[in-house]
């Protein structure tokens, strides 16, 4: 893989992080997907030999820094998601797109539940219905993220 390949890998994941910390109007913020799960999910699916748990850790820490959460909280969630993805990437290649989208929802749920669990150890928080919306929307945007990133992967021949 050449330099532009690394650049695209890094930039796409950084963009996903920035999208997640972007201030949004209230209505949109509720349904805003967990971009990093979908983007990291794609790279773990397409290039499991390039992207792995280390990248998940790095961008997780970055999310912690941006969100001012305990350092390691988002990283823990993201590393777990990446591990599941890495264990499953042979099966995922055989999935239909809608099955992959469902899997992304499951991964987003794992991610959210870990965050919720850690947060609930620190403070009393309640699970309310808006909790589920980003999980669903992550599955919804998966085909778009998939098509977009595959386009760039093929265009720049990232292998």
């Amino acid at each position: 893989m050449n330099l532009s390949g690394y650049f695209i890998l890094f930039t796409s994941m950084l963009l996903a992080v920035l999208l997640m910390i972007m201030p949004l109007p209230d209505g949109l913020a509720f349904i805003w997907p967990l971009w990093i799960v979908a983007v990291l999910g794609y790279w773990l699916y397409a290039l499991p030999h390039r992207v792995s748990l280390g990248s998940a850790l790095f961008f997780g820490i970055l999310l912690d820094v941006f969100n001012n959460t305990l350092l390691g909280q988002h990283a823990l969630a993201l590393v777990t998601v990446a591990y599941i993805m890495e264990k499953m990437h042979h099966q995922i290649r055989l999935f239909f797109w809608w099955q992959q989208a469902l899997l992304m929802m499951c991964l987003a749920a794992v991610y959210s539940f870990i965050l919720f669990f850690v947060q609930s150890l620190l403070a009393e928080i309640h699970l309310s219905w808006p909790f589920w919306l980003p999980i669903i929307s992550t599955g919804v945007i998966w085909p778009v993220v998939f098509a977009l990133l595959r386009h760039y992967r093929q265009k720049f021949r990232i292998t």
Binding site: P48, L57, L70, L71, G72, L76, V79, Y83, E86, K87
Partner: peptide, 24 residues
């Protein structure tokens, strides 16, 4: 990839995260 190596790496990073969180 050898699966045991993956699992070990996973555990290592998990431990790193936990230590960071406790220290923070």
């Amino acid at each position: 990839r050898q699966t045991s190596a993956t699992f070990l790496r996973f555990l290592t990073w998990l431990l790193v995260c936990l230590v960071l969180m406790v220290l923070d």
